Computed example of a mutant assay.
Amino acid sequence: MRSKLGIVALSIVLLIVGLFLGYSLRAPELEEAKSTIEGLKEELSRLSGAYASLKSEYEALSKKYERLIADYSRLREEYNQLRSDYEELLREYEEMEKYTEQFIEQIREVLYVRHFLLHDYIMDELVSFDGVIPALDYMYYRLNVTREPMTLELRLELLEREVSEYVTYDEPVIVDVADLLREIAGYDDELFANLVLQLVHELTYNETLYPKYPIETLVEGSGDCDNLSILAASIMRAGGLKVVIIICEVRRSPHEPLMGHAMIGVALSHPPEMPYRYGREAWYVEYDGEVYYIAECTWSYEEEAPWTYEIIGSLVGDNPWYEVKIKAVVAIP
């Protein structure tokens, strides 16, 4: 009995020793396995975090994608609408272009005719002539819608800066008028200048909001001081005379305020004789070493003919103003 118990005890001891020896031999592997498991757990945790982050980004991108699809659909609809509008506008433009061509063809035969009656004081006779202006030439200027409305003061500043833009003395219509007046005056520059002055004095004084070109003033038969001065300067320059625009302030009496004004100065080979015949001196300005005799281009005497020479302001050299303050003298190139 004792021997059996001893055998059992020995077997248990040997088993424990075997287990201990086995554990001792496997311990490094177990530690390595534990380390691997820990590493895998960390990797799993990292991958889980990365997955969660990617999932969040995916969801955000999905929402952006949906918004982009919605924006694309909206833009596509807008594009289709714009294309439809463009095609409609193109059809309207082509139709308008066709009508414009027809309008131009029809208006080529339209002429504006201005009748003038002038006095040739050398021959002491009245001379009439017609200024003929093609409507197309007039429309070229009048349909210029880029002009802004301006006060007279602003127009005078514009004229001072851009005089060559408005004094269109090389315009065929202006050249034709100058040639007609030259036929009457011959080589008498004073008579020629006074005929030009009579012509603009036949036009109605009318305050305007826009700077006007000579053809516009001629066709419309009206203008204020800057418009009339531009027309007179253009015709005189086309007739071979040197001209300046005088930007000034004037008043008719000491009790009136000064007001902005424009008139012209014209260079003559000798002092004008006509003012002296009526007991008046000839007024002038000096510019760049040359004398320019002033000419008032507005006419306030509707009941009187422009050749009523007793009226101060009817002749080149007359100064109808009580006071003139010159602000600028602008040469016509």
Rank of each mutant, 00 (worst) to 15 (best):
Asn194Thr: 04
Trp321Phe: 11
Arg142Trp: 15
Gly131Asn: 05
Lys98Asn: 11
Cys248Asn: 02
Glu323Phe: 04
Tyr86His: 05
Glu32Met: 14
Thr36Arg: 15
Thr151Leu: 03
Pro275His: 02
Trp307Ile: 00
Tyr23Phe: 12
Ser128Asn: 08
Ser300Met: 08
Ala185Pro: 03
Asp130Pro: 13
Gly279Val: 08
Val329Arg: 01
Pro214Trp: 03
Glu216Lys: 13
Glu273Gln: 14
Lys212Ala: 15
Lys98Arg: 15
Glu190Thr: 06
Trp299Arg: 05
Cys225Phe: 02
Arg91Cys: 08
Lys242Trp: 00
Ser229Gln: 01
Glu207Cys: 05
Met259Gln: 13
Gly240Phe: 07
Val219Asp: 08
Val196Ala: 01
Ala52Asp: 13
Lys327Asn: 04
Ile104Cys: 07
Ser300Gly: 07
Ala52His: 11
Ala331Ile: 02
Ser164Leu: 07
Ser35Val: 14
Glu87His: 08
Ser11Asp: 04
Ile122Pro: 10
Glu92Phe: 06
Ala70Asp: 14
His261Leu: 00
Leu203Tyr: 13
Arg251Ala: 02
Leu199Asp: 04
Asp189Glu: 15
Tyr112Phe: 12
Val163Asn: 04
Thr204Cys: 07
Ala193Thr: 02
Tyr79Asp: 15
Pro172Gly: 06
Val200Glu: 01
Leu156Cys: 05
Asp176Gly: 06
Arg91Lys: 11
Glu165Gly: 07
Leu19Trp: 10
Arg280Asp: 02
Pro306Gly: 04
Lys64Gly: 06
Lys55Ala: 10
Leu61Pro: 11
His255Arg: 09
Trp283Tyr: 15
Gly18Leu: 06
Glu165Pro: 06
Pro211Gln: 10
Leu75Trp: 04
Glu153Leu: 01
Pro272Ile: 06
Ala328Thr: 09
Tyr140Glu: 14
Glu273Leu: 11
Gln106Ser: 14
Glu77Pro: 07
Val329Thr: 00
Tyr278Trp: 09
Val127Gln: 05
Leu15Ile: 07
Phe129Arg: 13
Glu38Leu: 08
Glu281Leu: 11
Met259His: 12
Arg114Gly: 00
His119Leu: 04
Ser3Tyr: 09
Leu54Thr: 12
Ile37Gly: 08
Asn80Thr: 11
Ser24Thr: 14
His119Phe: 03
Val173Trp: 11
Tyr23Asp: 08
Thr204His: 07
Glu165His: 10
Tyr79Ser: 14
Arg46His: 10
Asn80Cys: 05
Leu241Pro: 12
Ser253Met: 00
Tyr141Asp: 08
Tyr141Phe: 07
Tyr322Pro: 00
Glu220Ser: 12
Val316Ile: 10
Ile326Pro: 09
Ala135Tyr: 11
Met96Cys: 12
Tyr287Pro: 05
Val324Asn: 03
Leu158Met: 11
Tyr138Met: 09
Tyr293Asn: 00
Leu191Gly: 05
Lys41Ile: 11
Gly313Cys: 02
Arg251Glu: 00
Glu207Ser: 10
Met139Cys: 05
Glu153Pro: 07
Leu25Lys: 15
Val17Met: 05
Gly131Lys: 06
Tyr65His: 15
Gln198Glu: 04
Tyr309His: 02
Arg67Leu: 15
Pro272Trp: 09
Glu125Ile: 10
Glu190Arg: 03
Ala331Asp: 04
Glu29Pro: 14
Thr146Arg: 08
Ala262Phe: 02
Ala52Leu: 10
Pro306Ala: 00
Ile7Asp: 14
Asp226Tyr: 08
Ser222Asn: 13
Trp283Gln: 10
Arg237Val: 13
Leu152His: 13
Gly186Cys: 03
Ala27Arg: 14
Glu220Val: 01
Leu158Asp: 11
Gly22Thr: 14
Val329Lys: 00
Leu54Glu: 15
Val145Trp: 12
